[in-house]
């Protein structure tokens, strides 16, 4: 059903496409191969404790990767989300230290994220500037602001509430994992069950048709960036809960992990083809890879090589698969 709605608005939505080649082939293969492999070689990998660990470590990345999926679906790119997450974290931490409550501080952080998101969206949608450049610029601005606000240091001493919040568990699942699951639910509903979601899917594949049918394509583009910014602000709360402090550079480079996850999850840069659950698989694939290599004790510099090789390998496999199915 859901897939059908998505397909209707796509130009290349041929039903005969091989299921795996169109959807998250990369992430699925990685998971199918790596999980048993690590299960055998990495002691404790399949223990419930470790599986919760992987979920916990993946939760924040998912919060960044979900809006990134929307951005990439509309043929955009948001390089600023990692730096924004850091900046919002610093803002949130400073407000908590100043004695504000968690909800107020979180809303303020989300407002900061939203503001940057709107700036991104305005420049991209209204001024027609390339998303790559705009968000690279706001990346610099957000990172600089974060460093300056925090004076280069970690902002800590956040009080007991945030510790209580991060220690909360439900059926053994940490609160961050629950939040990530809820966030997926919301993004799923928005993307597949609302008019706005249909527009998002349609913009990537066929902006012109959408424009002709009287929809403001600019608004859709702009809104996607705004959502990305605000979500980064909310993700800052999760990051703070995990690290117990606001760090001005904590999420630097995380946008690239998010982009890698989205791509592993089968969302394409070029045609606006995508699958939201694929992003979840992509995030998990990266989480599993890092966790497993850590458990085995592989030199961390080789982990970088492994992830880079994985991204390129997945692209290659997808290229071969799509050529065969055409």
């Amino acid at each position: 059903m859901i897939a059908d709605i998505a397909r209707i608005s796509r130009l290349r939505g041929s039903r005969s496409l091989n299921f795996l080649s169109s959807k998250a082939l990369g992430a699925s293969v990685v998971l199918i191969i790596l999980v048993p492999l690590f299960g055998v070689f990495a002691g404790g990998f399949l223990s419930p404790h470790n599986l919760v660990n992987i979920a916990l470590q993946s939760s924040i990345l998912l919060l960044i990767a979900l809006p990134m999926t929307l951005v990439i679906l509309t043929e955009g790119l948001d390089l600023s989300s990692g730096a924004l997450l850091s900046l919002c974290g610093v803002v949130l931490a400073l407000l908590l230290v100043a004695g504000y409550s968690i909800p107020v501080a979180t809303l303020a952080a989300m407002a900061v994220g939203l503001l940057f998101g709107i700036l991104n969206g305005f420049c991209v949608a209204n001024l027609g500037m390339p998303p790559f450049v705009v968000t690279l610029g706001t990346l610099g601005m957000a990172q600089g602001l974060a460093l300056a606000l925090a004076d280069g240091n970690a902002v800590s001493g956040l009080g007991p509430e945030i510790e209580a919040f991060s220690a909360f568990r439900f059926f053994g699942l940490p609160v961050l994992v629950l939040i990530a699951i809820a966030a997926y639910g919301i993004f799923h509903l928005v993307l597949y069950r609302t008019t706005f979601g249909r527009y998002v899917i349609a913009v990537g594949g066929n902006a012109e048709a959408l424009r002709l049918s009287g929809v403001s394509v600019r608004l859709v583009h702009g809104a996607v960036f705004a959502i990305s910014g605000a979500t980064a602000g909310f993700a800052a709360l999760c990051m703070i809960a995990r690290t117990n402090a606001g760090h001005p550079t904590i999420a630097l480079g995380m946008e690239f992990d998010a982009i890698a996850a989205v791509v592993l999850g089968g969302t394409s840069f070029e045609r606006g083809n995508g699958w939201l659950f694929g992003t979840v698989l992509g995030v998990l694939a990266i989480g599993v890879l890092r966790n497993g290599l850590n458990l085995i004790g592989v030199d961390t510099s080789l982990q970088l090589v492994a992830i880079g090789a994985l991204v390129i390998a997945v692209l290659l496999v997808e290229r071969l698969a799509s050529e065969r199915s055409v």
Partner: peptide
Amino acid sequence: NFQEQIAQVEDAITRKPKGMVFVPVDTKG
């Protein structure tokens, strides 16, 4: 990268080492 170090600590616990020696990226966090 502090966030990565936290994940590495969590992963290392699973290996049940005899002990850990540590240079933290950030002591408080």
